[in-house]
Design a protein around this nucleic acid. Structure first.
Lengths: 169, 169
DNA sequence: ACAACCAGTTGCAATATGCAATCACATGGG
DNA sequence: CCCATGTGATTGCATATTGCAACTGGTTGT
């Protein structure tokens, strides 16, 4: 067996898996946008991901254990993507990326609301949010959905109908 | 003026800047490996970055305000790269990436030591480390260098002379 | 003078990405 | 049944990025 990795450094290995322009965009939309179907991820993407790139990333994530793919019971053709625990553990990472981007990139105010809430909430909010993701994607028990509701409604209010997704097929 | 960005989302904008296989590797080596010269970054890179990629990234980082480039006073030909505050603020992000990679990628034990120390130290250690980076790269006052010393020596001990960099020119 | 070293640049093949068109299959309505 | 629509992709092709070796123009040390 040959070693396909550039090095065994944890930062490097994470970059080999997620270090490109689209991977974390897809994860972000599943986690914070609650998108679970190919078509949702394709057409409701703020950045306009191409269908072949999306297909490739979803396939790679399933192969690497970040997502699971199951058939939708109501629609045989539809595939439902669910987060695994490793993917849920990316929440702190995405929160840090969002916090950094909010300070040091020309992010628009409306799209920064979500990052700001996550930053102000801190690790406690992240943990509550992750627990709710577990209840949605892994079937874990939950006590409420206040965090999801807060983040979702803040995001929807900020973006709302004004966002014109650049859908393609 | 046309808008060159895919969206104003802070996560997206951060990915447009740092979302590739090499950018954070270079930042990591400057921050944790204390490498400040082109040749150091090129030949002491664990992953073996190519010289044109390194040149491109350094140039982009200077353009985007993540690094500053100054001439070495002792050596006219040598260029010294220094971290700016935005780059120093990437420490928490790199710590999260390392922590995730340590759990969910096949990272080698020796290269995970640094990530483990950062994870166990938490935000307090990050802040102390960042303050020391400011004293080194920005000339800020400092009270000591225990954090750098700890991280550096742990890393050097783990990698030591065993690391054979794949240098190219 | 001369070898060694410095920060890059150049040329070129291989690979990855972006994008539109297309595919096979499933569902729903008449 | 027939056909429009929606599904998760795949294909072809142009462009962009990467990997790699060779090379450049200048500097330093002896």
């Amino acid at each position: 067996m040959t070693e396909p990795h550039r090095s065994g450094c944890p930062i490097n290995l994470t970059l080999e898996l997620l270090g490109d322009r689209w991977s974390l965009i897809v994860i972000r939309d599943i986690i914070f946008g609650n998108r679970r179907y190919f078509r949702e991820l394709l057409t409701q993407s703020e950045e306009g991901i191409a269908s072949n790139i999306l297909a490739d990333r979803l396939k790679r994530f399933v192969e690497n254990g970040l997502l699971t793919r199951t058939d939708d019971p109501d629609h045989r053709q539809k595939a439902l993507y669910s987060l695994t625990e490793p993917a849920i553990q990316l929440v702190p990472l995405l929160a840090q990326i969002g916090a950094w981007g909010r300070r040091y990139t020309p992010a628009t105010h409306e799209l920064s609301v979500r990052a700001q809430l996550l930053e102000e909430g801190g690790p406690k909010l992240w943990a509550a949010f992750m627990q709710e993701l577990r209840s949605i994607h892994l079937g874990a028990p939950s006590k409420g959905r206040s965090v999801i509701a807060t983040l979702q409604s803040a995001f929807e209010r900020a973006v709302g109908e004004s966002a014109r997704p650049k859908a393609r097929q």
